[in-house]
Design a protein around this nucleic acid. Sequence first.
DNA 1: TTAGATGCAAATGTTTTGCAGGGCT
DNA 2: AGCCCTGCAAAACATTTGCATCTAA
Lengths: 147, 147
Amino acid sequence: MQTDCGEESSVETKLSEKHLKITKARKLILGMLTQASPKTVDELASMLGANGEKLSLSTIYRTCETLSANGLLLKTNLTDDGIARYEYLKSGHVHHAICLGCGRIIPIDDCPFGQFDRLMQSKYDFAVSSHRIEIYGYCRECRRRLK
Amino acid sequence: MQTDCGEESSVETKLSEKHLKITKARKLILGMLTQASPKTVDELASMLGANGEKLSLSTIYRTCETLSANGLLLKTNLTDDGIARYEYLKSGHVHHAICLGCGRIIPIDDCPFGQFDRLMQSKYDFAVSSHRIEIYGYCRECRRRLK
DNA sequence: TTAGATGCAAATGTTTTGCAGGGCT
DNA sequence: AGCCCTGCAAAACATTTGCATCTAA
């Protein structure tokens, strides 16, 4: 069991850092989400099925909830379809570009927020803790396809 | 019936501009949301009840959906609690500050987005159509209360 | 008059929960 | 061993839909 333990052990490390038991469900879900865009519970179940693994829906819900509560995943409702999505939460903060053509969700490292929290403080008397930015538009493939 | 027809008639004007029938449900819901923060369907039903009015839940859902489809309301899932909220859509674009203390949703006129779409184009090859920005933090009252 | 809006009740789909059994530390 | 995790089934909840009735244009 020496192969590709890089992934494995980093997932396990993250779990133990948060004082969470290392279970099959948590390793599978966290492992999948470290290398994928935000996914719904249903999509996670399908991905597991495609790999010959199986977890009950309630376990996936509970696992995602636990991992979110511990800051390893982020729960979002990006698409306003009423279905929650979970994504791996990298150290830094991340925004999303959502393609209106294909629905793809593209993580964006850059952030336009800048010094805006100063304005929020002075103009609105609001102390900013965090923010979320979602960008809608069209990716290259969809622009090409729609042309 | 001369009193406060300013509100009334502007709501009716907006409806007819969109070629929508002017019905009691649409006048009530649009009228309420023009002077309130984003509300869930349940909250709208309660507000109506408090005013001695009554609409079935399905009517509220359908009315909000119609008004959103016609650009008079915006459907959002700001709080990730899985419950949709509808807000009056002003002409310009608006962002929100969400207080983590009291849950209040504060409309923000300013926008930090700036020239960010140029970066999105050059770095990610993504053509920006629109964006949404949500700001989390604490309002003055909650900061005072928590102190 | 007639297309479309409403109310009611039933259906749908997502998410949560109770409980018994099993796994991790 | 002890506590937490998991699976299953049932419950809870928001939202949608079918259909008969009513209403605005």
